[in-house]
């Protein structure tokens, strides 16, 4: 996929979840500029290779191979260049410590993936719409 014009970066190791997410975004015509990273390391590289422009929103799973989602979040929020990129944690975990840590590290939202597909699709679509169309990031 082309690196330019990426609006949504989806960091998701589970191919099924990734497919379902893309489908949900596609239903709202938000899937055109989505880039998928399959693990944390890939996501870190995506940001810090120095060439790629920042996406409008990052949908971040927590349980990731190589580099953990929370670590990715931490590194994004620790760097001045990437700090303003909105990060929405999209995960299966509804464990309190995860939620607390994610917000402590600067997550902009925390969404628990519902098992129910309709609910899941609705949640993903709402998030995409909100961050892409309604949110006004700093220039």
């Amino acid at each position: 996929m082309e690196a330019h014009g990426v609006e949504i970066l989806l960091v998701e190791d589970n191919a099924n979840d990734a497919e379902l997410t893309l489908r949900a975004l596609k239903q709202r015509n938000l899937a055109n500029q989505v880039h998928v990273c399959r693990d944390g390391a890939e996501a870190v590289d995506f940001f810090f290779d120095g060439a790629t422009p920042a996406p409008k929103v990052v949908l971040l799973d927590l349980k990731l191979p190589k580099v953990d989602g929370l670590e990715v979040l931490q590194r994004l929020k620790a760097d001045a260049r990437t700090r303003t990129i909105p990060v929405v944690v999209l995960t299966s975990s509804r464990e309190e410590p995860d939620i607390e840590r994610a917000y402590a590290l600067g997550a902009n939202s925390y969404i628990v993936k519902p098992v129910d597909f309709e609910a899941f699709a609705r949640a993903v679509a709402d998030v995409g719409l909100y961050w892409l169309l309604l949110n006004h990031p700093p220039q």
Partner: peptide, 25 residues
């Protein structure tokens, strides 16, 4: 145990979501 339940919550739900999702699709 915490990490076990974390796994349960995360790893058991993902396939379920897939089953449900693809059945819906």
């Amino acid at each position: 145990l915490e990490s076990f339940s974390y796994s349960v919550s995360h790893d058991l739900r993902a396939p379920l979501r897939a089953i449900h999702g693809f059945a819906r699709i």
